[in-house]
Simulated assay, not measured.
Amino acid sequence: MDVLRGFALLGILLVNVQMMAGPQVRPGGVLVASHPDQVVEWLVTALISAKFYLLFSFLFGYSFALQRASAERAGEPFAPRHLRRLICLFLLGLAHGVLLFSGDVLTVYAVLSLVLFALRDTPARTLLRAAAWLVVGTSVCLLAWGAVTVSFGEPLRPQDIASAVETNVAAYRGGPGSVVETHLRSLRTMLGWNIVYGADMLAAFLAGLVAGRRHLLADSGRYRAQMRRIVLWCLPIGLAGGVFMAICRNGPLDARWYDVGSAIGVLTAPLLSAVYVCGLLLLLRTGPGRRVGRALAPAGRMALTNYLGQSLVMALVFTGYGLAWYGRYGTTAVLAGCLFLYVAQLAVSRVLLRHVRYGPAEWLLRTATLARRP
């Protein structure tokens, strides 16, 4: 689990930074997008967007099963522990969303944890069936809205985009008060989308809960043949869905097709996420793969701290909290910086966990869960 979390941190970072860094602009709000930047953005959409938050969500559901088993072994009631945990998670997410990054998912996770708790004793087959319907339902809703937009919407004019960019540039390059005010507006705007995509996250929670009950990750070597088949059969479909989503979101189709692409992406992203998981688990069975696992595991063990740390660093770099570089650099340069940040997190996590057992955010969450110092 720690290795998978450490791997997922990179995908989350590469997606989130594009929101926090903003599109590159010249003075006057004229958008700048070099050909390399367009290619990089297209590839991130096709291969990463909508895949890694599903992996994190799956692991969240898996952890739920482990936490319940831990409470039972300790002879303590699970409900109070879980309630304290989700309250702490919600407050962390609220602070994260208001102060650092309006695209926060921790608050959504906390709310969906209530649903997960209510369904904790539901039979596995029912949970998997519900997960499938949630994914299909989310895709259908997006497809219906996208069809309306394509049929009746007007293509965005360059001046409309430039106006919105100018507003964001001024807000994020302003002082801390301007940044917080912008985050609050964004949180209200994103509420509806959190509800739509929350169903997709819940589906991954349910799949993770079933996997956690069966301890699939504890002895993944037993399922090597099945994992190879998953990679073989799911990779072409998942890639095709990712490519179609990139065509709709990043071109050559215009912005009216965004939600149509998202609908196909939601439907096929679980397949590509499964390919990534199975491919990594198979890799860990090899000599080089074990070295990769040793590099990723410490960062995954303190994944919450690293997730919040990524947002803190990006806020200091791109907003008025620090350097205010919002909109100053293209996607290629920004993602290169993210790779440096990610490698630094791997190194710092490894050093830190030689001296302490938990990262700071994990320690806080565990303290709230246990209602005592760990």
Rank of each mutant, 00 (worst) to 15 (best):
Y307M: 07
L312S: 07
L335F: 11
R291G: 03
W257N: 08
R354I: 01
Q345W: 04
L282N: 07
L271A: 07
T305Y: 09
G251Q: 12
D254Q: 08
L239H: 10
R350A: 15
L253H: 12
Q345M: 14
G241D: 08
R228M: 11
Y276A: 08
G293R: 05
L284A: 11
A263G: 15
V231R: 01
D259A: 12
T331V: 15
G309T: 07
A344C: 14
L341I: 14
Y321G: 06
I230L: 14
C248F: 06
T331R: 04
L267V: 02
R354L: 08
Y258V: 10
G337R: 10
L296H: 09
I247T: 05
L253Q: 10
L239P: 10
T286A: 07
S311W: 06
R222W: 02
G322Q: 08
D259E: 14
T286I: 05
C278L: 02
A263W: 01
G309Q: 05
Y321M: 05
Q226P: 00
G337F: 13
T268Y: 04
C234S: 15
P298W: 04
P236H: 07
W233F: 13
G238D: 10
L296P: 09
T319E: 03
R224E: 14
P252W: 14
P270Y: 07
V231G: 04
C248G: 13
A299Y: 06
R224S: 12
G241L: 05
G221H: 05
V334K: 11
L272K: 03
V277Y: 03
A295Q: 09
Y223H: 13
L239T: 13
L308V: 15
L272H: 03
L346R: 12
R229F: 00
R256H: 08
R350M: 00
V317D: 02
I230E: 01
L232A: 15
L316K: 01
F244M: 11
Y329D: 11
F340Q: 12
P236R: 08
F244I: 14
Y326S: 04
V343E: 07
G327N: 12
W325R: 15
A303Y: 00
L323M: 14
A269R: 02
A297E: 13
T286Y: 05
V348T: 14
F340L: 15
C278E: 04
A347N: 01
N306K: 01
S311A: 15
G337W: 10
W233S: 09
R249F: 06
L217S: 03
T268N: 06
G322K: 11
F318L: 07
A240S: 14
G330I: 09
V351K: 10
L316C: 14
Y276V: 11
Q226G: 04
T331N: 05
P270A: 08
S311R: 02
G327A: 07
M227A: 10
P236M: 07
D259P: 00
